[in-house]
């Protein structure tokens, strides 16, 4: 299945892009957010440690699936389906 991933604020996460990073990941059926993070860590080594600590999302950071925080879904075990949009959210203020 194909999942669209958006990493907002890439500079904050120590990635080379100023603008949002958008990519399509092709995953096995039944894949979870944990699989997405692992895949992103393969592409951007060290990325996992910027968003996950002790198997949980780091406080004040978030991952959304179709606009819903995984805190209100099934956390890192949230299962994905074809066409889902995953957004990695940095802290912010406004």
């Amino acid at each position: 299945m194909r999942v669209r991933v958006v990493i907002m604020a890439p500079l904050y996460f120590g990635l080379g892009s100023v603008d949002q990073i958008k990519l399509d990941l092709y995953l096995e059926d039944g894949a979870t957010i944990r699989d997405v993070v692992n895949k992103l860590n393969d592409i951007y080594p060290g990325f996992k440690n910027k968003i996950i600590f002790q198997d949980k999302i780091i406080e004040m950071h978030d991952i959304l699936v179709n606009g819903r925080s995984i805190d209100f879904l099934d956390g890192l075990n949230t299962r994905l389906k074809d066409g889902d949009v995953v957004v990695v959210v940095s802290p912010f203020g406004g």
Binding site: A9, L11, Y12, I58, H61, P91, F92, G93
Partner: peptide, 8 residues
């Protein structure tokens, strides 16, 4: 982290 993100 909020200060860092706001700064960037």
């Amino acid at each position: 982290p909020t200060a860092k993100a706001l700064h960037i």
